[in-house]
Amino acid sequence: MTLTVLFAASDANWAEYAAPLRAALDEAGLSARLTRDADPAEVDFIVYTPSSPAQDFAPFTRCKAVLSLWAGVERIVGNPTLTQPLCRMVDPGLTEGMVEWVVGHALRHHLGMDRHIVNPGRVWDPVCPPLARERPIAMLGMGELGTACARALSALNFPVTGWSRSPKTVDGIPCLHGSAGLDQALSQAQIVVTLLPKTPETENTLNVRTLALLPDGAVILNPGRGALIDDEALLAALDAGKVGHATLDVFRMEPLPQDHPFWAHPRVTVTPHIAADTRAYSASRVIAGNIRRAVAGEALLHLVDRGRGY
């Protein structure tokens, strides 16, 4: 039987994914028609991004799964018409990119690179940074991405403490959970990395109260979700010197409005949501692999828990 796979995403996504996804489906041994237009009653799988015009999933009565090209699913998980299984994207290429961004910016702040890279006054400033083992890091979020970043930083001898809302066990990384665990992790962290999903429970995880727990001059790296941080509380903490610098890749509104205070703040670095991106060649293999599993009657990978929102 030939499967019908509906590609419900933008024109730009189609131009990027059509060839590698067809190749991945062939490589997986699947007889499949990849299309952007099909009778909903004949669709077996949907490859999806929130930019798609497909927002009503009720007509897709034969669909076995909706396979997101995005790691974040907050814009679809609450759709009341979505009764099909939903799988988020866990792409090896995306994970590698996130690890590189987090490690790069952690090292930038740990080593104090800005003093020497931007030195218009030609100041001889022989300040020796501490060793990595003397620079505690809190990793907020110990999912696929947080765990990969925690392990990479730990391999460089940073003492990394993981935190998540529910208990997690990761070899070699001490993990805390719950509100008391969050307070403990933040109170000792000189660098904080936020890689939590966006849910009602995680919004404003870093706020007036929790930012006050940080050691003076702590650095925040946010490649996770803009809503994890209370913007006004962060700006106040930066102005007061409680937070030494914030490197932010994600924002509540994107692109970040030109009049937003983050652009002009001397202790803020804005990067344009580039910490990690889905790579078409590797993501296509993830999609094809999950379709093959479904056809074979195997459990889907990266299945979203609707109750938890990710």
Rank of each mutant, 00 (worst) to 15 (best):
P200C: 11
P174T: 08
H177P: 00
S187Y: 04
V208D: 13
V193M: 06
T205S: 12
L186K: 03
I191M: 12
S166M: 10
S187F: 05
A189F: 02
T194M: 07
E203M: 09
Q190F: 04
I173Q: 08
N207L: 15
P174H: 06
I191Q: 05
K168H: 10
K168N: 09
S166G: 07
T202E: 08
G178C: 07
S166H: 11
T199D: 12
Q188R: 07
V208T: 15
L176H: 01
L196M: 09
E201V: 15
S179P: 10
D171W: 06
V170K: 04
S187W: 04
P197D: 11
N207I: 13
V208A: 15
D183C: 08
E201Q: 14
T194E: 02
L196W: 01
E203W: 02
D183Y: 09
L186E: 00
E201C: 13
T202P: 05
T199H: 06
S187M: 07
R165Q: 12
L196K: 02
E203D: 14
I173M: 11
S164R: 01
E203T: 15
P197R: 10
A189Y: 01
S164C: 11
T205Y: 04
P167N: 08
P174W: 05
L176T: 00
I173E: 08
G178I: 06
G178F: 05
E203P: 02
L176F: 01
A180H: 12
D171H: 12
P200G: 13
N207G: 03
T202R: 05
A185W: 00
H177F: 05
V208Q: 13
A189W: 00
V170C: 07
N204Q: 13
N207W: 10
Q190T: 13
